[in-house]
Amino acid sequence: MVISAAEQVSPGRIKIATADGPAFFIRTVYLQCVDPELIIPAAEFSGEEEQDVLDAGLCYAAESKASAYLARAEQSRFGLSRKLVSKGMEKQYIDKALDYLENARFLSDSRYASAWLNCRKAAHHEGRIRLAAELASRGIDRHTAEDALNEYFEENPEDGECRKAVEKCMRRGMDYDKTVHCLIQHGFSPGMTAAVMDTFTYQEKKSR
Rank of each mutant, 00 (worst) to 15 (best):
E102G: 06
F106V: 03
P36N: 06
R163T: 09
K65L: 12
Q185F: 01
R171T: 13
D198F: 09
D198V: 05
P22M: 06
F153M: 15
P157A: 13
E161L: 15
M170V: 04
V34M: 12
C162V: 10
A19N: 10
Q8N: 10
P22W: 06
N156I: 00
V196A: 07
Q75V: 01
E146Y: 11
G57F: 00
T18A: 04
E102Q: 12
D159P: 06
D198H: 03
E48A: 05
F24P: 00
E102A: 07
G21Y: 00
C119W: 13
S46C: 10
R208P: 13
I3Q: 10
L101R: 03
D35F: 08
Q75L: 05
Q185D: 08
I39A: 14
S207I: 02
E134S: 09
K205R: 07
E151K: 14
C59W: 02
A66M: 02
W116T: 00
H186S: 13
N118A: 05
A61F: 14
P41Y: 05
H143G: 02
A5L: 11
G79Q: 12
A148T: 04
D198W: 06
A6S: 03
A148Q: 14
E44V: 12
G173P: 08
R171F: 05
D147S: 11
K65I: 05
C182W: 00
G88R: 06
R171I: 05
F45A: 14
A115C: 09
A148N: 04
A61T: 14
A23Q: 10
D20H: 02
S76E: 09
R72Y: 05
R128K: 02
R82A: 15
K91D: 11
C119G: 10
